[in-house]
Amino acid sequence: MNIIITVAQVIGGLVSGSLSLLSDALHNFSDVLSLVVTFFANRLAKKEASIKRTFGFKRAEIMAAFINAATLIVIAIFLIIEAIERFQNPHRIQSLTVIILSSVAIIGNGISVLLLKKDSKVNMNMRSAYMHLITDMMASIAVLSGGLLMKFYGLYWVDSVLTFIIAMYLIFVGYDLLKPSFKILMLYTPDKIAIKDVVIEVNKLPAVKSIHHIHVWQLNEDETHLEAHIDFNDDIKVSEFVEILHMIEDVLRMKFGINHVTLQPEYEKEDSKDIIVQD
């Protein structure tokens, strides 16, 4: 549906001379790319891990979300430049073509939005594709409004203004998607987790002297990992460590949502006991 909409709008934009229709076509084309990337990312994420890819392709969906968001911003910058140039030199536009094709785009994108709505609530990659489509539907509504103003009132400068507004909104939406995916790719500590609170909770356990050298990151939206060194008060047995490990895993899972824990046990080891250590 989005490929058909894109081709129709490109042809219609060139024939009618409408920059806002072309901008909507470019946005629709980004939707096509978004959906293609999303489809293949979902397929890749389901592939099993291997010796060469011990995590499998679990980051594929995050990469897709990042690419989709970056695409939105790049397209928006291009549209802003074109809109400013067109505003200085308004062109007469075939408004009927704009009205017809923007209406088609609204219907097509509306159906796509409904199809992706459910999955967009639980997956960043699907949410990025969903946001592409819903913003494009809104953009098409704006283009339709502009087409009506041009047809009945001859306000051709509206085309450039609408293009500028659509582009600014694309930047806003793109940044909102780019930021969380960038944080995951850069191994940032998740916003919802305070490492100092993690230290306080783990250090409450009687056998634990200190937890230090901590790393917390998200592999994807579903997996949050923690690795750390843990210093014990006594020279305990491995079997005792396993029991304490289960307690730590329970605390981290229930209080912080951390579902993958790797700990290096230590006793009187001479190393840095700082919470954060530069590797």
Rank of each mutant, 00 (worst) to 15 (best):
A228E: 02
L219S: 08
D234A: 14
L226I: 11
H225T: 11
A207E: 15
H215Y: 11
I214R: 03
K209W: 02
V216G: 02
H229W: 07
E240H: 12
L205I: 15
Q218F: 02
H246Y: 13
I211W: 07
H225R: 11
D235F: 13
E223I: 15
A228L: 02
H215M: 11
Q218Y: 01
N233L: 10
H213K: 00
H229S: 06
E221M: 05
I236P: 10
H225Y: 14
D231A: 06
M247S: 12
S210N: 13
E240T: 14
S239R: 11
A207F: 06
I211C: 06
A228V: 02
N233G: 03
F241S: 07
M247H: 13
D235L: 14
W217I: 03
E223W: 07
F241D: 08
E227H: 05
V238Q: 14
L226P: 03
Q218D: 09
A228F: 02
N220S: 09
L226T: 06
E227Q: 06
S239D: 11
W217N: 03
A207W: 02
S210V: 06
H215A: 02
T224L: 05
L219K: 03
E223F: 09
D234L: 09
H246A: 14
H212C: 03
H212W: 01
L219G: 01
M247G: 06
I230V: 14
H212Y: 03
E240N: 12
I236G: 09
D234M: 10
S210A: 10
T224V: 15
D231H: 12
V208Q: 08
H246T: 13
L205D: 05
K209C: 04
N233D: 04
H215E: 08
L245H: 15
L219P: 00
V242M: 08
F232V: 10
D235P: 08
E243C: 07
K237W: 07
E243Y: 08
I230K: 01
D235Y: 13
A228I: 00
I211N: 07
I230H: 02
D231M: 09
Q218K: 14
F241N: 11
H229P: 04
L219D: 06
A228W: 03
D222I: 05
L226V: 07
I244P: 07
D234F: 11
H246D: 15
E240R: 14
F241R: 09
H213S: 09
H213C: 03
H229G: 02
F232W: 12
D222K: 13
F232T: 10
H212D: 00
I236H: 10
V238C: 12
I244A: 06
L219T: 07
M247V: 01
H213M: 01
W217G: 00
D234R: 11
V242W: 02
H246V: 12
H213A: 10
K237S: 14
H246F: 11
P206A: 12
K209D: 08
M247P: 00
H213Y: 05
